[in-house]
Simulated scan of single mutants.
Amino acid sequence: MLEEIRIQNFAIIDRLELTFDTGFNVITGETGAGKSIIIDAVDLLLGGKADGSFVRAGADKAVVEGTFALNKTVRAQVLPILKREELEGESDDYVTLAREVKSNGRSTIRINGVTANADVLKSVAILLVDVHGQSEHLSLLNPKSHIDLLDRYAELTEMRLALGALVDKVNTNRREIKRMTEDEAALKRRVDQLKREVEEIDIAELVSGEEDTLRAE
């Protein structure tokens, strides 16, 4: 769950820090108070498109940072990604995402304080938050999420990850066997080539100093 979000120089927001409790949280306010802007900031944090218009007037950049607590199921899915990309944090129970957007539209992504790319951010973010709205794309409509939902319901996530690790090992071993086989074939071709060259030299019956003799003639 999202435990804390920090927003700076984003749209009309100068600086804002929100802490969320476990359970149901509600943000209320009058029209124009900035409720939708907070959702926009969360969307950016989760990999949404960066835009220079997000930067507050007079500021150089906008910053959004969020800290997420990982339950057992989500942790089992997120940690392998962080480990693979060398993005582990100080604690396996939390992950921190951050986006910086400059006025020219360029953005920087950080996961646990380390620079990351958009694809990695999205692969982590989709496991952390599902944004529901009138025009939002719900994860229930995304076929790619159906297996995850079924595995969560059947409590098979850890077993699937363990199986995935074994499959990765098998594929790695297959690639290594293929490489070794190809190396052996290449070595055999090289040996055959050298044998032919030796045979050609023997047939030529070359004599030491023969080149000098030919030049003298």
Results as ranks from 00 to 15, higher is better:
Met1Leu: 13
Glu3Thr: 09
Arg6Pro: 00
Ile7Gly: 00
Ala11Tyr: 05
Ile12Gly: 02
Glu17Trp: 07
Leu18Gln: 02
Leu18Lys: 00
Ile27Cys: 05
Ile27Leu: 15
Gly34Cys: 05
Asp40Ala: 04
Ala41Trp: 01
Asp43Phe: 01
Leu44Pro: 00
Leu44Asn: 00
Leu45Val: 04
Gly48Tyr: 05
Phe54His: 05
Val64Lys: 00
Gly66Ile: 01
Thr67Arg: 12
Leu70Cys: 02
Arg84Tyr: 08
Glu85Arg: 10
Glu86Gly: 06
Glu88His: 05
Arg99Phe: 01
Glu100Gly: 07
Ser103Leu: 09
Asn104Phe: 13
Ile111Pro: 00
Ile111Ser: 00
Asn117Tyr: 04
Ala118Tyr: 06
Val120Ser: 02
Ala125Tyr: 04
Asp130Phe: 05
Val131Thr: 04
His132Cys: 08
Gln134Glu: 10
His137Trp: 06
Leu138Thr: 08
Leu140Met: 11
Leu141Ile: 11
Asn142Ala: 10
Asn142Gln: 14
Lys144Thr: 11
Lys144Leu: 12
Ser145Tyr: 13
Leu149Asp: 09
Asp151Phe: 04
Asp151Cys: 04
Ala154Leu: 12
Glu158Asp: 09
Glu158Met: 08
Glu158Asn: 05
Met159Glu: 11
Leu166Gln: 15
Lys169Pro: 05
Ile177His: 12
Ile177Ser: 11
Lys178Thr: 13
Thr181Trp: 04
Glu197Cys: 03
Glu197Met: 13
Glu199Asp: 15
Glu199Gln: 14
Ile201Leu: 13
Ala204Glu: 14
Leu206Met: 13
Leu206Phe: 11
Val207Leu: 13
Glu210Met: 08
Arg215Leu: 13
Arg215Gln: 10
